[in-house]
C-alpha cells in the first residue's frame, strides 16, 4: 500500500489572469490528519478541487493514493470521501433519499454505519433537505463523506455552520476515524480548530504554501500577544533582551508585546515585580499568516520555500 496519501509537485492553477494556486508542493502521509490552513480566498478550495479532478491544473501534478489525479480519477474517487466547501444538496430529497442515491452510485454503503453517523451528529434524515438549516445540511454532507468508510477524506471547511457542540463531536469523529486508519485532509481558516484536530498543518496564503509544520511545533512557534499589568512601573530594559519578544512597549505599569516560543523567560522576568494580571488577547489569523509570511520569505523557519 502507498505510504503517501497526497503528493503534489509544482501544482499551479491560474484562472484567467487571476492566480488560484502557484507551485504547490504538498505531501500528506497516510494515516495523518493534515490541516490546510489559510484565510478565505487563499486557494484552499482551488487546491482541493484540483485533487478531485474537478478542475485541471495549469501546470504541475497531483497524485492521490499514489495515482495521477488526472488519469485515474475514478479509481481514486472509489477510495475517497469528499465534502465540498460550498455544499449544495438536492433540495427536494430527504436526507435518507439523498444518502441512498449517493450510496447507490458507489455500489452501496453500510446502512448501520450511516445511521450511527447520523445519530452521532444528531441529524434527522427523514426531513426534506430544503427545510433544513445550514448546519443540518452540513451534517448530511459530513455523513455522505464518511459513509462508505473511505481511506482518505478530503473535507473543505467541514465545521462551517456547525454549532460549537457539533464541532467538538466532529473533531472526535475525525480523531476516532483517523485512529482506525483513515487519512484526513481538512481545510480551515480557524487555527484553534486545526490545533485540536490535526497532526500537521500546511499554511497557504495568496495561493502559495508558506509553511508546513507539526501542530506541536506550530504551537511552540505560534505568535501570541501578551499584556502584563504590574503594581508599579517597570524598567523596559529588563524585557527587551528576552528571546522571542517583539513589539515590546512598556507604558507606565503595563507591558505589551508579541511573543513566539516559550513564555517561560518572560514570565520569570516579570515575576521579579509584583504582577497584577496577565492577559493574552487572541491573535487574529491574518496576523499569524503575516508572521509566517515574513518568516517564509525571510528564508528562516517555515517548512516550504515560498
Amino acid at each position: 500500500m502507498e505510504k503517501v496519501a497526497i503528493l503534489t509537485r509544482g501544482l499551479t492553477k491560474y484562472y484567467g489572469r487571476n492566480r488560484g494556486v502557484e507551485d504547490l508542493d504538498l505531501r500528506v502521509e497516510r494515516g495523518e490528519v493534515f490541516g490546510f490552513l489559510g484565510p478565505n480566498g487563499a486557494g484552499k478550495t482551488t487546491t482541493i478541487r484540483l485533487l478531485l479532478d474537478l478542475i485541471r491544473p495549469t501546470r504541475g501534478k497531483a497524485e492521490v493514493l499514489g495515482m495521477d489525479a488526472r488519469v485515474r480519477g475514478v479509481e481514486i474517487r472509489k477510495r475517497l470521501g469528499y465534502l465540498p466547501g460550498d455544499l449544495a444538496l438536492y433540495d427536494n430529497l430527504t436526507g435518507e433519499e439523498l444518502l441512498r442515491y449517493l450510496a447507490g452510485l458507489r455500489g452501496g454503503a453500510d446502512w448501520g454505519y450511516v445511521r450511527y453517523l447520523a445519530e452521532r451528529l444528531q441529524c434527522d434524515l427523514t426531513l426534506r433537505i430544503k427545510s433544513l438549516s445550514r448546519g443540518n445540511k452540513q451534517k448530511i454532507g459530513i455523513v455522505q463523506a464518511f459513509m462508505h468508510r473511505p481511506e482518505l477524506l478530503i473535507m473543505d471547511e467541514p465545521t462551517n455552520g456547525l454549532d460549537p457542540l457539533m464541532q467538538h463531536e466532529f473533531h472526535r469523529l475525525v480523531r476516532e476515524t483517523s485512529e482506525a486508519g483513515a487519512t484526513f485532509f481538512i481545510s480551515s481558516h480557524n487555527l484553534p480548530e486545526v490545533e485540536r484536530m490535526c497532526d500537521r498543518v500546511g499554511i497557504i496564503r495568496e495561493g502559495r504554501l508558506v509553511a508546513v509544520d507539526e501542530v506541536e511545533a506550530l504551537k511552540r512557534k505560534a505568535l501570541r500577544r501578551l499584556e502584563i499589568h504590574f503594581a508599579s512601573p517597570v524598567p523596559p530594559g529588563d524585557f527587551a533582551a528576552i528571546p522571542g519578544v517583539k513589539d515590546l512597549r512598556v507604558e507606565d505599569r503595563t507591558l505589551t508585546c508579541s511573543l513566539t516560543g516559550s513564555v517561560d523567560a518572560l514570565i520569570k522576568a516579570a515575576a521579579r515585580f509584583e504582577v497584577l494580571n496577565v492577559v493574552s488577547p487572541e491573535v487574529g489569523l491574518e496576523e499569524i499568516f503575516m508572521h509566517y509570511y515574513r518568516e517564509g520569505s525571510g528564508g528562516e523557519g517555515g517548512g516550504a520555500d515560498a
Partner: peptide, 13 residues
Amino acid sequence: KGTLDLLLANPIP
C-alpha cells in the same frame, strides 16, 4: 446549483 461537485466526487467518469 452547485450539486455537480458532489455528484462528480463519486467513482463515475
